[in-house]
Amino acid sequence: MKRITALALALAATVASAPLAQAAWQPSKPIEFVVTSGPGGGTDTFARVVQSIITKHKLVEQPIVVTNKGGGSGAEGYVYGKASAGDPHKVIFGTNNEYLLPLVAKLAFKPDDLTPVAAMAMDEFLIWVNGAAPYADAKSYLEAVKAKPEGFKMGGSQSKDTDETLTKLIEGATGAKFIYVPFKGGGEAAVQLAGAHVDSNTNNPNENIGQWKAGLVKPLCVFSPERLPAGAKVTADKGWSDIPTCKEQGVPIDQFQMPRTVWLTPKAPDDAVTYYADVLAKVKDTPEWKEYIERTSQTSRFLSGKDLKTFIASDEEKNRKVFEKEGWVVK
């Protein structure tokens, strides 16, 4: 009975709104958030925070369901998105792996298959060493690595992904040579560094903060043009803003960041892209979002439309250079 009523209402609504159909696209059924990582990963938290903010502030009429499709470093989620071409009720959450993964692995989707909606935050990267390591700054550490090629182990998350790319960039910029050891995720890389099984890692702030608090690891420098914004102290005497930039330390890498991105399926109507971009822009202005950004020490940067396309093109270009040099690119 309820269902029939709903059907009738829906029909009535369609008829009534027919002349306005051009106006704005609205979701007409439950929306699926497709997460390109497993439960608990950085992308997962990102998507669930967005979901909880949308639900709390009632920014979308329809219910939202989150599904994890993290197989193949996230490729599973993108392939799934591609297969649902034209369905604007599926929103895919990822990082820059949407356009970088297809470069290094033979996959069933191409970077421009999906429709970019927005980039909402940039995750920062730092060089970390064990808390008991005798290096006070990045300069002395990298000198030591340089003096003993392949004598130091750099831990990271996954292979041919952001961490290894950054490692290769550091090697290229300083002439040092690491042994790169890939782990399943940043959390594992953090513990391996805390246990002194590797010599350094390039984790995001959020992945190492617990170990840093305990003094088991320490940051040497951050890959951003300016120091991170000041916040509460993490250890007794240090906070994020006390970490020098890598450039200050003589490592000629200006910036290395990972965008948190949102996509729609191929051939999604332009109206829908605008609709979601608007919703996400509202999300970005909520106190909950600001709190999430601060807690995870990411940089808030909202990109959509043309800015986003320009950013993606330049980010891909930067990474492609490294990939080509290392011979990772697949044909």
Binding site: K69, G71, G72, S73, E76, K106, L107, A108, S159, D161
Partner: peptide, 21 residues
């Protein structure tokens, strides 16, 4: 599926269904 160590796909024979292993 995806091999953590090398970052490449193994034994998927081009089937997207096998990406997740």
């Amino acid at each position: 599926g995806m091999d953590t160590i090398s970052g490449s796909l193994r034994l998927t024979f081009g089937f997207s269904e096998l990406l997740n292993g």
